[in-house]
Design a protein around this nucleic acid. Structure first.
Lengths: 247, 247
DNA sequence: CGCCGGTTTGAGTCCATTCAAGAGGAGTGG
DNA sequence: CCACTCCTCTTGAATGGACTCAAACCGGCG
């Protein structure tokens, strides 16, 4: 456990400040949290369903995803996490993990003891409020994904995901909204959208054919943001961000 | 605003105690919360997407549901709420509602000012923790529903919903787990499962044909709980309850 | 060079949808 | 008490969006 390089936790401060105001003492307390740095390789599990983790995971770089596997073998991805996200904050309160958290790319993480998080959340109301809000925004994203999977067709789902990802990358300070690297295989996209990888492929080809996006490998370029947002039935309200909307 | 009949808030205490330990002072503080009683008729909106509600809604009797409507007109229901649930606790922290809360049946509710809830949550850690946990369990249910809609076939989805409902009714102290009144039309079931009402009907008929359930109007009898749970790929872990499993 | 994971494409199938019509039940008003 | 209406449930037939199976292609890498 180390508090040496406390500036390492800066991405968390940035993220929490999007969710609620923090004063300097709050920030200092956050940066003083004890943590342990750890790296994960692509596909490596960070938390497994059934675990009782004693640390919560802050992402410092790379991408991770949460998912669950149904009895028939089907996998459903619930969310993609990026720099600054407290990807399993819920495990600080719920004793037992009800789903998996897995690295999507190479990941650098800071693991923070759950008691330290809990104590801080209840000692400093502004921090507690921001953290609680973080989990509420998570829930809002889950609802939107349920709507996506339950009531939208493949084309709309795909466009919606591309918009969300663009939006959140920009909010996390990771590059321009209209040109980014999608860190997922088409099979992983399928598991996020409730489709098969074959159909994801056809859908991407179709979106490209319509001129809504361009692709080179996994690099995405959004030609016409408003058009893609329309195609994806995308309204960023559910992300509860205060950042200005991209282009 | 009244604190007269403070025993009215008892169902909330019962529910929060399933989520975390509360001492007598906590319970007294909860029961002393100011609130206003209000009734809603079936289909009446309690909170609308875009609202900024100043009260949170505790259900005293009846059922309510949360949902959102996609651009194509499709509606997705995210959860069903019952006696004791704080159905829009999230609106105490997020300024603006991102989805609708609507009465399913006739509803009696206690509306509690959001500042009173926030103050209590941060003054009394045990209460704050239980409330935060309530929203985390909500999120867990959303994830399970995403999995349901994204990766399970109609039969499995339907069986899963029947199991969840049975389970939660029992936990809320509303009757036996194997015989209950499902307070939804088949169209509402369809919107919860990401199906059409026609297919919901065929699916229910099929489940009945297999002998997994019996129906009379909307009354459901579960003949063989373990069999239905198997058919529904149901594992109650995601509800994070401590109650004993029914039969 | 040859493997390997990921992507692309084709053809046939199926689960759920759509469209449509009829039956059942509860409530209302004459 | 019956006729009428409205809503929900039920059933049938045809359609379609996404799936399955399978093969070929591609780029990166040892």
């Amino acid at each position: 456990m180390s508090t040496a390089d406390s500036a390492a936790l800066q991405p968390m401060v940035r993220r929490l400040r999007q969710l609620g105001p923090l004063d300097e003492a709050d920030v200092a307390a956050l940066l003083a949290l004890p943590f342990r740095r750890l790296e994960y390789r692509p596909q490596e599990h960070i938390v497994r369903e059934g675990d009782s983790p004693q640390r919560s995971c802050l992402l410092l770089s790379g991408f991770a995803f949460r998912h669950k596997v149904a009895g028939n073998g089907g996998r459903q991805i619930f969310s993609i996490h990026m720099k600054g996200d407290l990807a399993d904050l819920q495990n600080s309160l719920l004793g037992i993990a009800d789903h998996n958290l897995q690295a999507l790319t190479h990941v650098e993480a800071a693991l923070i003891p759950v008691e330290a998080i809990r104590d801080l959340a209840f000692d400093r109301p502004a921090i507690g409020r921001a953290m609680w809000t973080e989990t509420l925004v998570d829930a809002s994203i889950f609802r939107e994904w349920t709507l996506n999977v339950g009531r939208r067709d493949a084309r709309t789902r795909m466009a919606h995901l591309l918009c969300e990802f663009s939006f959140r990358l920009a909010a996390a300070g990771l590059g321009e909204p209209c040109r980014y690297e999608l860190p997922m295989t088409q099979e992983q996209l399928a598991d996020a959208l409730g489709l098969t990888s074959v159909h994801v492929n056809r859908t991407l080809m179709a979106l490209e054919g319509e001129g809504l996006i361009e692709r080179r490998q996994r690099a995405i370029r959004i030609g016409d943001w408003p058009a893609l947002a329309r195609a994806g039935d995308f309204d960023a309200a559910y992300l509860h961000l205060r950042e200005p909307q991209p282009a």
